[in-house]
Amino acid sequence: MLKTAAFRWGAALALFAATAYASDKVTSVPVHFAKGTSSASMKGSFSGYDSVEYALGAKSGQTLTVKIAGNSNANFNVFAPGDKPGAATAIGSGSVGADWSGPLPKSGDYTIQVFQMRASARRAEAVPYTISFEVR
């Protein structure tokens, strides 16, 4: 009887954890530069464990600069083509007041993931931000 109750309790916790993870929303946004320009700025917002992933096409050898402004909880990671957040190491990262700039190792679509750290995500804080991209 005690083993059955412990099993049910464990199963309920596992189901709750899976449901909480499945509810994290990832919004995908393509980045397009206006004709004749090499930069773009976009506004966004998310809360809790949600995140936003920007897809930006660039060529090997170009330099990408990413800046984020707004809520101090806004952070970002930059992933090379074919690499995904949670499955690969970011080639760069930054936050409000800490821009990132670097040469790009290969051609393709780069993913820039915008998120907040666990402490503020746990409190479901809202994070409005403006993110800027420049490719040279």
Rank of each mutant, 00 (worst) to 15 (best):
G44R: 07
G94F: 04
T89Y: 01
T65C: 02
G48R: 06
K43F: 06
A69S: 15
A98H: 14
E53A: 09
F76D: 04
S93L: 09
G70W: 09
N71Y: 07
D50R: 06
L64K: 01
T65G: 06
Q62N: 13
G61W: 08
D50P: 08
D99Q: 06
G86P: 03
A74Q: 08
K59L: 12
E53C: 13
T89G: 11
Q62R: 08
G92Q: 00
A88V: 09
K43M: 07
M42P: 10
S60G: 08
T65K: 04
G48D: 03
K84V: 12
A40K: 15
G61R: 08
I91T: 02
T65S: 10
G94T: 13
F76T: 08
T65N: 09
D50N: 15
S93E: 12
K43V: 09
A40I: 11
V96R: 02
S72F: 09
S72I: 12
A40V: 14
G94S: 08
G97Y: 07
P81Q: 03
S45C: 13
D83S: 15
S60C: 03
T63G: 07
N77E: 07
V78I: 14
G94I: 05
E53D: 14
A88F: 00
A80P: 04
N73F: 11
N75Q: 13
K43Q: 13
G61T: 08
N73W: 06
A87W: 08
A80G: 03
E53Q: 14
E53R: 08
G82P: 04
F46R: 03
N75L: 11
P85N: 02
S47P: 10
S45A: 13
N77P: 05
D99M: 05
A80N: 05
K67W: 01
K43N: 13
A80R: 06
D83P: 05
G48T: 09
V52E: 03
S95Y: 05
E53M: 12
P81S: 05
P81G: 03
V78K: 02
A87T: 08
G44T: 14
S45W: 10
S93P: 03
I68P: 01
A58I: 00
A55L: 10
I91K: 01
N75H: 15
N77G: 07
